[in-house]
Every structure is written in C-alpha cells, then in structure tokens.
Computed example of a mutant assay.
Amino acid sequence: MDDNFTHMVRTQHLAAIHAACLVLVLIAHRRFTNRNSINVPTRDSMLHRQEVREEMLHDLLTSGKCRQLICMSENAFKILCQKLQSEGGLRPTQRMTIEEQVARFLHIVGEIDGTHVRVRVQIKDAPIYHGRKGYPTISVLAACTFDLKFTYVLSGWEVTASDSRIIKDALTLEDKLIILDGKFYLVDGGLPHRSTLIAPYRGVRYHLKEYSNRAPQNP
C-alpha cells in the first residue's frame, strides 16, 4: 500500500514538473519570437526613417524653416556644425549625421532629475521610506529649463520606488509632464532613454566630480 502511494505521489510530481517545463518552454519561445520581431526593422520602417531624416535635413538646410525650428539661421547652423566637427571632435554615426546630432541637441528644452527630501512618517510606514540616506525621505522629480526655471515637480513617491517608475507616473498622470513633439529633456543614467528623454551613454563619465583627477575619455 505504501509503495503504491509513493509511486502515485512520484508520478504526480513528475507530471507537475513536466507541465511546468512545457509552460516555461512556451513562455521562452514567445519572448524570443517577440524580441526578434521587435528588434529586426522591416524594409518599410527603414525607408520611413530615411524619409523622415531627409525631410528634417531639408527643413534645416534649404527650406527656410531653420530659424522657425531651432531659432537659428541656416548659415549659423552650418557654421555651428562645422565648428563642432573641427574643434569639438564631433563625428557622424551609422544612425545620425552631424547635422542630425546638433539639431537634436538644439531641441533640448531642459533637464529632469530627482532628489530626496526628508520626511516624518508613521513607524509602520518607515521601512519603505528608508534609503541610502539613513532616514525617511520621499523622492521628488523636477524638470527645469536651462535658465533655472522649474516647469514641473512631482513629489510623494517613497524612496524605494525606482526612477523609471516615477518618470512613467509623471508622463501618464492627469496633470502630467508635457513634452512637445520634437522636443527633448536631458536625464541622468537612472532614467530610461526614450523618444523624449536623452540619457547619457552607459559606462562614460559625465559628472563633474569624476574629472577631478582624471582626464575626459573622449570628445
């Protein structure tokens, strides 16, 4: 009787393991398929991107819309691109020409960053507000222009919330952070790089304090 019961339990365990393996294989297959379908651009998408690039460069260099788009004359824009190339070491990439890189930077309207503000909370809630500071804080996300004017502030998130979760909330709230089409904000490495947010290159020093006793790595 014991042997039969043991055999039955073992059979059930094996069946459960087999079912779990089938589920994992199915999930892995779907993720692999979706990843490949997303990462591989189609011919139509590549042609569309090329048309967009050509239209933008035409608007900047020959259509007379340069001043309207980036508050700069066509001649000044060309001179700026030449100086950044000859004196600043700017180089074209496989995806962007020098003109595209400069135009993209000139469409940056400000910066977004977060900070921690000390708060007093109930003892039972204290753990989720404790971070590296050693005392309870909340995360405050702020956007400001280059002339130091705040344009958006979001506060109240506990310190354990990730930066990506906070910025996602800021962009989806009813009273959300609005970023106009074709404009961008600079963000630090803790925030995601997306169509309206420009994050720094991974693995490259960019804080001023990192240059105290080391030279820059590249232009």
Rank of each mutant, 00 (worst) to 15 (best):
M1R: 14
M1Q: 14
D2A: 11
F5Q: 14
H7R: 09
V9G: 08
R10W: 14
H13C: 10
L14W: 15
I17E: 15
H18G: 00
H18W: 01
C21I: 12
L24V: 11
H29Y: 09
R30W: 10
T33I: 07
T33R: 09
I38C: 13
I38A: 14
N39A: 00
S45W: 04
M46T: 07
L47I: 03
L47D: 04
Q50R: 07
E51S: 06
V52F: 07
E55K: 15
H58K: 08
D59L: 05
L60C: 10
L61S: 06
S63E: 06
G64I: 09
C66L: 06
R67I: 12
Q68I: 05
S73D: 07
N75S: 09
C81I: 02
Q82K: 05
S86K: 06
L90H: 02
P92H: 01
V102N: 04
D113W: 14
D113C: 10
G114A: 15
V117S: 15
D125S: 12
P127C: 10
G131T: 01
R132A: 01
Y135S: 10
T137G: 15
S139Q: 15
A142G: 04
A143C: 12
T145W: 10
T151Q: 08
L154G: 03
L154D: 09
S155N: 05
T160C: 02
A161P: 00
D169Y: 00
L171T: 15
K176A: 03
I178P: 09
L180W: 00
D181I: 02
D181T: 05
D181F: 08
K183G: 04
Y185H: 05
L186C: 07
G190Q: 00
T196S: 12
I198T: 12
V204Y: 08
H207T: 08
L208D: 01
E210S: 14
E210G: 11
Y211E: 03
Y211V: 06
S212F: 06
S212W: 04
P219M: 02
